[in-house]
Amino acid sequence: MKIIEFVEIERAFKRGVNVLDGVSFDVEQGEVVGLLGCNGAGKTTLISIAMGMLQQQRGEVRLFGLDPIENPLEVKRRVGYVSEDQILPDFLRVREVLHLHRHLFPTWDDDLTADLVTRFDIDLKAKIKTLSKGQARQVALLCAVAHRPEVLLLDEPAGGLDPAVRREFLETAIQLLNESGSTILFSSHHMSDVERMARRVVMLHEGNVLLDNELDDLREQFSLALIPDDGQLDSDALRALPGCLAVRQRNGNLHAILRHGPEDGRALLTGKLGVSVVRCESIPLEEMFIELVGGQA
């Protein structure tokens, strides 16, 4: 069942410059999707649109089949949301923030709350403004998950947090997955978090979906080929090769990302272009990201 649907979403903040320029993808129930892209690629915009906090100028967004702007209450009750620059009312105490949320959400789980308060070592009497960045984010996460939402929308949830707190975050999300089978869409620049959590990756670039694949497929059906840039091979010929997604020149080599596994990629390059390939191998997500959107730098 489709839980989140983005259909041809367009959104500009300056006339004529679409940050999102026709973004479409679905998230199925129970799926964990990592949303990747450079700064300014539109990840926050897209997640805000899913939350109904921002309206798209074209296209449709649906959560549980509902428009989040037309059905704000129903959608928000079923969703948990954490963002990097989330603001909690800083004059309240933690206990008061939790009370507030408890009354907003009929499905609030007191046992889970108590469990997380202990695990995160949260001081219920503390005022929000006295909390460290990491503690404040943990309170935000607690508020986002304690009603056991069907969907978790996380916008760079671990941004600026230390590795120990990030790991707590990850484990809390995994607990929710295990116990409630929640659907998760999260953006992150921490590739290793994405690699641990996500089964599928959607990469936004220049307003569009550049890549939408299972993470395992990115390892097994994609590869990076290194070819000596000695003037024998025209980089345009390389770009024209079927399944070639990106070509960059780096340190006397041509780098090509291929939509083929290492073996097939090597065979294709040798067979079609007759070049000697230095290396053709599977690569981690971070390298893939840099090769695809890193430009010539």
Binding site: G30, V32, R167, L170, E171, I174, Q175, L177, N178, R196, M197, A198, R199, D216
Partner: peptide, 17 residues
Amino acid sequence: TRALSTELGLNPMTISK
């Protein structure tokens, strides 16, 4: 699946796969 996913910090679907 649940125990190993928590222990290793991995998506449980990865363990079941």
